[in-house]
């Protein structure tokens, strides 16, 4: 696999699984993809209904989603660069796939928490998106 392909796969895995902190009146730890989903709904609400509160909420969601999209991209980029220090191609592939598998495995653990889902209980990523 090419380096760019590995980087994109790792970035996607980070977007879907890496818990990042956020705050919209209340705080939590959620994947960036989940923040993106709420951002889309809030923007739709803002466009259809308007209002100062909706605008404020939208700004919070857009800002934090954008921030973590960038942060996860940088993490994926530096991780793939670090992977290049490994000498053999098989070791590089194994390291990349191992990292992605670890992230995907974490998705099944109750490490995500937001007051907006399950009353704030820790849940896995599937429950988060239900």
């Amino acid at each position: 696999m090419s380096t760019s392909m590995i980087r994109r796969m790792l970035w996607l895995a980070l977007l879907v699984t890496l818990p990042v902190p956020y705050w919209v009146f209340e705080g939590g730890r959620v994947p960036t993809l989940w923040l993106g989903e709420l951002t889309a709904f809030v923007l739709a609400m803002l466009l259809s209904e308007g209002g100062m509160v909706a605008g404020f909420v939208a700004v919070l969601f857009v800002g934090q989603t954008s921030l973590f999209v960038g942060v996860t991209w940088l993490v994926a980029r530096y991780a793939t660069r670090g992977r290049a220090r490994l000498r053999s191609a098989s070791a590089r592939s194994a390291a990349a796939l191992g990292a992605i598998a670890a992230l995907l495995g974490m998705a099944f653990l109750p490490v995500y928490r937001t007051p907006l889902v399950a009353g704030g209980d820790a849940v896995n990523v599937l429950r988060l998106f239900q």
């Binding site: 919209v24 009146f25 209340e26 709420l38 709904f41 809030v42 739709a44 609400m45 466009l47 259809s48 209904e49 209002g51 100062m52 509160v53 909706a54 909420v57 007051p115 907006l116 889902v117």
Partner: peptide, 25 residues
């Protein structure tokens, strides 16, 4: 099926802030 109603059903706590902002402001 409006966005506001979808948010109310899926993330009611978020709707709480949205709607309370309207009543108190």
């Amino acid at each position: 099926d409006s966005p506001t109603c979808m948010i109310y059903r899926r993330w009611p706590r978020l709707a709480f802030y949205r709607i309370n902002g309207i009543t108190s402001g």
